[in-house]
Nucleic acid binder design. Structure first.
Lengths: 196, 196, 196, 196
DNA sequence: GATGAATGAGATTTCATTCAT
DNA sequence: GATGAATGAAATCTCATTCAT
């Protein structure tokens, strides 16, 4: 029973995140989720108070998982290693589930996010802000506002992963490495090179 | 008469694009558009057959305008100059209207886009593909698939401009220049430099 | 000006009756009438207070014209001659305009008819009632309630004329004569004949 | 569950047919149907895709039922017996439900009928055409086109039953018999009688 | 007088949510 | 607990009517 229930919960979460990623929150209906999760529509309301609750739980869980992954050994790394770590987290997390894509796509002022979800975005932003500040202090990363640096890396990553999801490109080890370098090049301080 | 009509049309377009950008297509209702455009709901249907027609006209007009801006003297420029041109088009276009933001946010498989809109995405993609191929042939740009290169630049730009829109950052001349350099660094071939 | 106005009035009446006959009152829109009448929608409201007024004027005019035609020399005729007269009025009136068809199709409890229109239906019914009562008194017509006799003749005529209107049959002199005989046979008293 | 569902379906069908008969398709709104059927408006859309689907299902079911009733032993009867059978079907069917009245009132070119519905009208017409052709071949029925003969009988019947529905007349056994004779007299060949 | 763009009340339709089974 | 039929509030869309030109 517990396992059956928990399985239904997971199925609903899985179905929801994939549909929200594909179609967005507002274009996804409860019957669509129910069908993809192979449960009745009523069942969804046994686990979630409302569609809005569902999306917030989903969002919070996804950002939570991402932050936990990110936190592991993060502070002990050098700036460049830290960047590699962030990139790996993004890649790995996106591989595991659509969660990463879902929260990258969600704008922080999305009408369906509640206060808790917004708070968690701030938390994640803070973590990344700390990291970028360290990089900037060390003269390794461009002295741009952290939210801009985050926007560059996550924005690029998001758009690329949309291509993966639509089947336009395949993400292999080589591409992965090169993309990481692209993103790094975007934000790192190219101090001694004459730039053109 | 003509001017009044065209003004109503413009007001509807303006209201629609801002709401679609803020909330997305599905979370935007016709009464919301009508209110922001200061017209009656019925008036919207004098100009557009349906909400779906409206979003497609909007999308096609925005991509059309962007492509026309982009095309001007594009082929005569060097690769780096070409990139500057693209970046200026993005910035300038976004300044003029919310159009740029709206079409950058629209995924090419969005459920509301019709065949014509999809065709126009292909056309724009083709233009940029040609540009990137030239850059790659000249050994100036990384040899990544064009859609990936596009994703990096537009993805980063989109996320940054969302910050501008929410008031988190101000876009001044210095930032503009630096961002262009960031995006260029992301895709250019850093041939002789030892990279870290 | 007067002639132009009166012509517009006629055009609206003509367009309305044909559309009401083809599609019914509720499925006919004011723009449809305006288009067929080659006038602006607003013009219709210069001649008629509302769509409902229009249909009632139309109805009353059509039943009025029919009754006037019917009254001419009606009382001086024999029962059989009277029937011929009624039938001729129907045929002739339908030939001239769609008016006959329109009022035959209108049920007396139609939601759009006003008190005046209903009163006029009663008047026509009364006229025909008098005629049928004479026929019944003379033993020439079946002793059925007049409204039933009217229903038989007009019901049959209406359905036949719908065939004419859709182009399924052509109304020529021979058919006309035979149909009159059919209808007469339906209501006349077949006294001495052994019926089978 | 099944019985409850089927009951709701039936209630919607019953409410619809009575309203369509009273007011016509276009003057009947979904809320009106919902109210008379004692269901929510949304419920109607669980059973029917659209108002148009509803009216076509209704029409097809009504004509289907009528044809099945009509077919029973129809071919084995003499022409006069066949006519009696047709008339009995009409009377009986109208007694049972408003279905008969509804399809008699529906013109074959009604804007809401779909291809299937039109095909079924053709099928019924064909059946009656066969019957009338037999009658004509045997010299029992007037040599008029079958659609004209059908129009006479159904047209008369329809108008009479509208009187029954509005409460103007009561349909008893005597009236029934006499009306059948009226209609038969309208179409039969009065060969040897001198007609006046 | 004539027009048709503009309007909003009211139509059709959708869908988040409830609740009897 | 699980279901999906039922619901009605709110969405999209239509159209009779008005009114500035």
């Amino acid at each position: 029973m517990l396992s059956a229930s928990s399985s239904k919960y997971d199925m609903i979460m899985k179905a929801s995140v994939s549909l929200f990623t594909e179609r967005g929150f507002d274009a996804t209906t409860i019957p669509m989720i129910a069908e993809r999760a192979h449960v009745g529509t009523g069942t969804i309301y046994r686990y979630f108070d409302s569609k809005e609750t569902l999306v917030n739980v989903l969002f919070q869980e996804s950002i939570q998982r991402f932050m936990e992954k990110l936190k592991q050994d993060f502070s002990e790394l050098s700036v460049r290693e830290g960047f590699h770590h962030v990139f790996c987290c993004l890649i790995q997390f996106t591989k595991e589930s659509d969660y990463a894509l879902f929260f990258l796509e969600t704008k922080k002022d999305a009408h369906y996010l509640n206060a808790t979800s917004r708070k968690m975005i701030e938390n994640l932003t803070q973590m990344l802000d700390d990291y970028f500040n360290k990089g900037k202090a060390e003269g390794v990363i461009r002295s741009l506002p952290s939210n801009v640096l985050i926007a560059i890396v996550l924005g690029a990553f998001l758009k690329i992963y949309q291509l993966v999801q639509t089947g336009d490109i395949e993400m292999d080890m080589d591409l992965r490495t090169e993309l990481e370098q692209c993103c790094w090049d975007a934000i790192k301080l190219h101090s001694f090179t004459s730039q053109k």
